[in-house]
Nucleic acid binder design. Structure first.
Lengths: 256, 256
DNA sequence: CTGCGACCTCACGCGGCGTGAGAGTCAAGT
DNA sequence: ACTTGACTCTCACGCCGCGTGAGGTCGCAG
């Protein structure tokens, strides 16, 4: 059509044809992602049809958000698991999507506040974007669990959750808490059937929603509930003495 | 809780409380985005309450995707139009959202192909993501129409299309082309009933599938078909002289 | 006095190119 | 044969938002 197929295309021609810059092609050559098969005597890069095809692939993967070295990996290793690459990429894009739609909501609220003449006070900002406490809590959680497999799993999973998921999770959490409260109020001992059932539900809930929960981890959590004042406050707000009760129930469950 | 509010917080304390790194605070100091009001005799940074508040704002804006110098601009100029900043930011986030959802669609298609055992051959990829020709066309189209409303509409719509949509569109395109070919082969003039009907179908097809097509735009397209060798080749490959025929039919349709 | 941890200031590194600088190459026009 | 202008080449620094040391100082506890 354009009739330039004799022996290879020059950088400029390739660049124009695929809407990339010459510098980009130079860069891909430099890092070894796409080296033109041939050069002219004067050192001009000549891209063969195969090179052009490879560039097409590169462009596609780049649009999919792959890093250049990952693209090289996928393209150079025919045994590479393309599907898993794609799935991981999809996950990343989805969580970014969630983040961004959250951002839009935040912006809309800020705009609304701005338009109605209400300057964003400290308190409003904290209401909108999360208060210092939860920020602080996240920081501490990262500090304590940041390198563990559980933390990564939790982060990976919760990033996927939609608003509806969160509502379901909240409902489940409430149900688990209610089970503990009901058991305690009924006078049942922590190691009674009701107490053990609640502890079991608690473990399942975390396992299903957040991360693989080993019995040891569950015990560790139980100890946190009485050791960490934030958790203690959380449970004791629901029912005085509940933190200790939850701890005892989990210990009873996991001790067997 | 940590109770350190006497005269100012150190970098480490601020960093922990807001889940940023010390290096980040150093960086903000370097670029003048957030300079702590005071230093100890030894040169330790001391962040006052006002500094901390400013950091909160910085963090919020950063989460909104603002660049650091933009944040500085917004925070330092009380007369800056915060609302317009927010609106521009919202637009940016929204378009990024569109892009990403397009990406998800592309990934899903690739995954589907991958899962059904079909390795992505060159041909399939080209089917999925467009061949060299359309890439070339896209590059040129962007160059020519990049700033027009039609181009944006087309981009926005086509990004949403699924594989099934594309197949339907291809079928429609074929039908339109067949109508032109049939009309021409039957010896009907471009401005005959058959020719005008084909031209009308052509216009509707583009209007429905790609972008709002005004009569003027349609005429403009018709002229492209005879002026641009790629379009000429496309139609003349179907039937010699068809490009001119299509042009004449559209002219006849829109001249009325 | 000796650690230990938190702090300080350089200063290089990353990814994915953009953006020149300075020099050589190619095809067309004079 | 020479010039022009478009294209190409190879360095090599710049950008953004920090990460990650290196090498030294400061403050407090034992």
């Amino acid at each position: 059509m354009t009739g330039v197929t004799e022996a290879g295309m020059t950088v400029g021609q390739v660049a124009e044809r695929f809407a990339v810059t010459v510098r980009t092609l130079h860069h891909y050559d430099e890092i070894g992602l796409l080296r033109p098969s041939r050069r002219t005597a004067a050192g001009y890069r000549l891209y063969t049809d195969a090179d052009v095809t490879r560039l097409q692939h590169v462009i596609v993967y780049r649009r999919l958000g792959f890093a250049l070295d990952e693209i090289a990996e996928v393209l150079d290793d025919p045994d590479a698991d393309v599907a898993s690459h794609l799935r991981r990429q999809r996950d990343a894009v989805m969580s970014r999507l969630d983040e961004l739609s959250g951002l839009v909501v935040a912006i809309d609220r800020a705009l609304e506040a701005e338009m109605s003449g209400i300057r964003l006070t400290r308190e409003e900002q904290q209401e909108l974007f999360g208060d210092g406490f939860s920020e602080e809590y996240q920081a501490e959680a990262r500090e304590r669990w940041g390198d563990t497999e559980e933390w990564k799993q939790s982060q990976a999973r919760t990033a996927q959750y939609t608003k509806a998921d969160w509502e379901a999770i909240k409902a489940e959490t409430d149900a688990v808490n209610d089970a503990f409260v009901a058991a305690k109020r009924s006078g049942a001992a922590p190691d009674s059937e009701a107490g053990l059932a609640a502890a079991d539900a608690h473990g399942r809930h975390i396992h299903d929603r957040f991360y693989d929960l080993s019995p040891e981890m569950h015990l560790c959590l139980a100890r946190m509930y009485v050791a960490d004042e934030r958790f203690t406050a959380y449970y004791d707000d629901l029912e005085p003495g509940l933190a200790q009760y939850v701890h005892d129930a989990i210990e009873a469950l996991r001790a067997t």
